[in-house]
Nucleic acid binder design. Structure first.
Length: 290
DNA sequence: TATGCGTGGGC
DNA sequence: TGCCCAAGCAT
């Protein structure tokens, strides 16, 4: 439905939207899908160059599916969470097998692809196909928490109330709903940011419940910080970087030198193999998966 | 439902 | 400087 927020936010988006390639008129559904995979937990600035190279090399799902998954992992570079590369490759293969090489437009079909959850299915259906779905990402959750609920941050995990709220705000006309969703996301990314919101630039500051309450500080449970140094995650990253940067298979010794703790190193390597990110060869060497 | 999963930039 | 955060997903 239409609310007091709708027009100001849509208007603000028209004047302030970033010129991102996956939003261009000639962007393909595949380009949108690739961007959504890469943007999962990764900032736009770091995605941009990788996305351009990716789309040049693999302009269609079929072109990616025709190559080994290890090539996807290599091209993923340092975006982080490389299992996403594997799942994107898997999605490309499933799109070829089940959908004739064309990215499906329905939420259900998208949700059935590997690496696609509720958010990404809604985002692709909405942004690539102009379908009407509530798109609830971290930006939207934060904007709605402040605007409608008067709190600085949304709950730790997504609630049904948040989904209902997002659905209740969705314009009835599907293309307008899609534009609304991307507009709220953009507002969260550029103005209603997590750390230091720029309320002076906000088009709905006058209607914001958090603003009207005097911007009370967050008083919920501490928001979980992620430690990294010394973790299995860091170890996995080091090991995989060796394989990414190598031309072909590497000797075990090349992996051993990047992490001192042998127990942790072996555990991480086994996990990478179990995840399908590393292929142990018969000759004792290691490679990205074929 | 809580946890594990990479990486780098901003404050 | 460390800490927090970034268009989540799978288990």
């Amino acid at each position: 439905m239409s609310t007091a927020y709708t027009d100001p936010i849509l208007h603000w988006y028209g004047a302030n939207a970033r010129d991102l390639p996956w939003r261009a008129p000639d962007a393909t559904p595949w380009g949108v899908l690739v961007s959504e995979f890469m943007l999962q937990q990764t900032p736009v600035a770091r995605v941009l160059p990788v996305w351009h190279r990716w789309m040049e090399r693999w302009p269609t799902p079929a072109s990616l599916a025709a190559e080994p998954s290890g090539e996807a992992v290599r091209a993923w570079g340092r975006l982080g969470y490389p299992r996403r590369a594997l799942r994107l490759h898997g999605s490309a293969a499933a799109i070829v097998e089940r959908h004739g090489g064309r990215v499906p437009s329905s939420h259900d079909d998208l949700l059935a692809l590997p690496g696609i959850g509720a958010y990404t299915a809604a985002a692709v259906a909405s942004f690539a196909f102009r379908r009407r779905h509530a798109v609830l990402d971290t930006n939207v959750r934060r904007v709605l928490a402040r605007l409608c609920s008067g709190v600085e941050y949304p709950p730790r995990s997504q609630t049904r109330a948040e989904v209902r709220l997002a659905e209740s705000l969705l314009p009835l006309d599907p293309p307008t709903a899609a534009r609304w969703s991307v507009a709220v996301m953009e507002l969260g990314a550029l103005v209603c940011t997590a750390r230091t919101p720029r309320c002076v630039d906000c088009p709905v500051t006058g209607q914001c419940a958090w603003q009207r309450a005097g911007r009370p500080a967050y008083d919920g449970p501490p928001r979980r910080g992620q430690t990294y140094a010394g973790t299995d995650r860091q170890c996995r990253g080091r090991l995989l970087a060796v394989l990414r940067d190598a031309e072909g298979p590497v000797e075990k010794g090349a992996l051993d030198v990047v992490w001192a703790d042998a127990v942790q190193r072996e555990r991480a390597l086994d996990a990478l193999i179990a995840d399908g990110l590393v292929d142990p060869l018969d000759d004792g060497r290691y490679a990205l998966p074929a």
